[in-house]
Design a protein around this nucleic acid. Structure first.
Length: 623
RNA sequence: GGGGACGUAGCUCAAUUGGUUAGAGUACCGGACUGUCGAUCCGGUGGUUGCGGGUUCGAGUCCCGUCGUCCUCGCCA
């Protein structure tokens, strides 16, 4: 062992180590000169230890006085208790310090573009700067904690599935482009000029083939790649827990995921969450919450009032209904005085929320005493008002909001409005907001009372799981003027809907399910088609003639008639899981080296131009 | 492809209605200091206001263009 190598980590020393000579390796978080001592906080990912350089050790003292932040040190010294009354309750090593006897400066460090040290009241540097110097950003305590959490989550998953007999199997990255779904990232072949591999959007086809091969319980923590526009919760490459099982029905998959989810929350966060999770059919989710991934931490349900609106004299409502649209509303209980007229009128906060989804406007009424008021009230006869009040459960002080539009527009708009209202009216809070408030007050109190700060306690209700089931099998693609698979073309139809496949595809429901956590889609899967004839019918419906399907998926069609067992599975979006468990709303915060919003890596600069020679080898020319 | 927000010192931000030499905190450099711990105190360095053009006696501020970042609709089976 080299003489500078550590004997302990920076988070390890306690009173029991007093008197021992130890060697620590780490980074200088900060150093403070005060009279005859230089105090250096030495940091590694395990913690923080105070190292003291005394003035009588002249050479050491002089070097220590010159040291800057982020120098890399090896310090050998003696563990001693801190001076009485100077112990720190808020850090694990706070009862002791190390008196330096020898120092090796392993590396210097110039002042960095931004601070690695984090303070509660300090904004972190701009994200693009942090992404450019991601290796420095990753030194920050909060990111180290997130990546540690992510490791723990992966470990729980592997242990859990291994214990249940699942095999972790790998599938290729270089595959074949498939026509359905997202845009592929393509990889040109040097050997076959003009031909391309596609990076996988998911291991979907391979895992089905593994089932046919008899590996009846498979999983993989797999990277997936999709060349589509990004969002706060989307990256071009992301990680899925991919799972597939044979000889199972839907409830087997859901049950497995419930026990896995409970295990993750137990072992990562110490939380016991109730199982089984509630289930909601897709049609109900869209009708009552305006979303296929509703956040059920709060109520505020959407109510259809089309029939009642038809009895009013309000031409806006009546013309929408005549055109086949719907009128739906939300009763924001007790919110009549929470929004000003300027927030409600066209161009105001609330109408803006629905306009994003192409809704033509937002109508409203307020319940003042027994009366309904507002500009559209006059179009509603008393008898119709009474029906409206009953349908929406109106009480004095309520605010009623209505959208009249095509069904899909009304659902989307009211779904977004519901989320907006839930947040604005504080019907729910994200746990990290509660934690931030707790930490601020608790830290102050703890300092005053000279005691350790009590950590924020998570509660099971901070994590609201939900299954959404019974998705439609197909959706009509307006652009391409054809049916498109809602989930993917291998999703099995519900048995009782099979007869409608060719007569009424829009009515066919799929054996598909999504897992929703706090309004985020964190998983999705289905029971697959395991019969070639059904698969052929589906391809035909999707506008793929048999020989075309054979060209694209021939291997799968052959496999399906080579003894395919009934099978199904699911994929969990682990980045989103980690994001919610870590308490952030930005997926980049839980990925070590993420891409930016335009899918560029700001640190390496990728994607980038390549040498002309590389292009020539690949047979690629740009016009 | 559309909509929105933002871009000022290394970093985080301020700068009144278009008006003096663009400020503060922090970082950095120098000094003081016998138990500091986000030390404190004193002093100092640091600016192409993203870039280009325009309006004006005068532009960080207004206009046009452009680049970049984030959020979002479309898109993402």
């Amino acid at each position: 062992m080299a003489e500078w190598q550590r004997t302990h980590t920076c988070g390890e020393l306690r009173e029991s180590h007093v008197g021992q000579t130890v060697t620590l390796n780490g980074w200088v978080l900060i150093s403070r000169k005060f009279g005859n001592q230089v105090f250096v906080d030495l940091r590694d990912r395990y913690g923080l230890t105070q190292v003291v350089f005394e003035a009588d050790a002249e050479e050491l003292f002089k070097t220590a006085d010159r040291m800057g932040r982020e120098w890399v040190l090896s310090v050998t010294g003696v563990v001693r208790p801190r001076v009485e009354g100077k112990e720190r309750a808020d850090i694990a090593t706070g009862k002791v310090e190390v008196e330096a006897k020898a120092l090796t400066v392993l590396n210097h460090c110039p002042p960095l573009p931004f601070s690695v040290t984090e303070f509660p009241d300090e904004e972190p540097a701009n994200e693009d700067l942090r992404l450019q110097y991601r290796y420095l950003d990753l030194r920050r305590r909060s990111l180290q904690q997130v990546l540690t959490l992510r490791h723990r989550m992966n470990k729980v998953i592997r242990d859990h599935l291994d214990a249940k007999g699942f095999l972790e199997l790998e599938t290729p990255l270089l595959g074949k482009s498939t026509p359905e779904g997202a845009r592929d990232y393509l990889v040109p072949s040097r050997v076959f000029n003009g031909e391309f591999f596609a990076l996988p959007q998911s291991p979907q086809l391979y895992k089905q083939l593994l089932m046919i091969s008899g590996y009846d319980r498979y999983f993989q923590i797999a990277r997936c790649l999709r060349d589509e526009d990004l969002r706060a919760d989307r990256q071009p490459e992301f990680t899925q827990l991919d799972v597939e099982m044979s000889f199972v029905e839907r409830d087997d998959v859901l049950g497995l995921m419930e026990s896995l989810s409970a295990d993750i929350l137990q072992k990562c966060l110490g939380l016991t969450i109730p199982t089984p999770f509630p289930r909601l059919k897709y049609a109900d989710a869209v009708l009552r919450y305006g979303s296929d991934k509703p956040d059920l931490r709060f109520g505020l349900e959407i109510v259809d009032v089309s029939d009642i609106a038809g009895e009013s004299d309000f031409t806006v409502f009546k013309s929408v209904l005549a055109a086949g649209g719907v009128v739906r509303g939300i009763n924001a209980k007790g919110a009549a005085d929470k929004f000003s007229n300027s927030q409600l009128k066209p161009g105001g906060d609330l109408p803006k929320v629905v306009e994003v989804y192409k809704a033509k406007g937002l109508a409203w009424m307020k319940a003042e005493g027994d009366k309904l008021t507002g500009s559209i009230e006059k179009f509603f006869p008393d008898a119709v008002k009474a029906k409206l009040k009953e349908r929406l459960g109106v009480q004095p002080g309520d605010l009623l909001l209505f959208v009249a539009d095509k069904e899909a527009v009304a659902a989307d708009a009211l779904g977004a409005l519901r989320t907006h209202l839930g947040s604005a009216l504080k019907l729910y809070t994200n746990w990290w907001d509660e934690k931030a408030a707790w930490d601020a007050t608790e830290a102050a109190a703890a300092k005053k009372e000279k005691r350790p700060a009590r950590p924020f306690t998570l509660r099971p209700e901070h994590f609201n799981f939900l299954w959404v089931t019974d998705f439609p099998m197909f959706g009509w693609d307006e652009e391409e003027n054809r049916w498109a698979a809602m989930h993917h073309p291998f999703t099995g139809p519900m048995d009782e809907d099979v007869p409608h496949l060719e007569t009424n595809p829009g009515k066919v429901r799929a054996k598909a399910y999504d897992l929703v956590l706090n309004g985020y889609e964190v998983g999705g899967g289905s029971i697959r088609i395991h019969r070639q004839d059904v698969q052929n019918t589906v391809f035909k419906l999707l506008g793929m003639e048999l020989d075309e399907a054979k060209k694209r998926f021939g291997f799968l069609l052959d496999a399906l008639q080579s003894g395919a067992p009934p099978h199904g599975g699911i994929a969990l979006g682990l980045d989103r899981w980690c994001m919610i468990l870590a308490g952030t709303t930005n997926i980049r915060d839980v990925i070590a080296f993420p891409k930016n919003q335009k899918a560029r890596d700001l640190m390496t600069g990728a994607p980038a131009l390549v040498d002309a020679r590389q292009l020539r080898d690949l047979g690629i020319k740009f016009s």
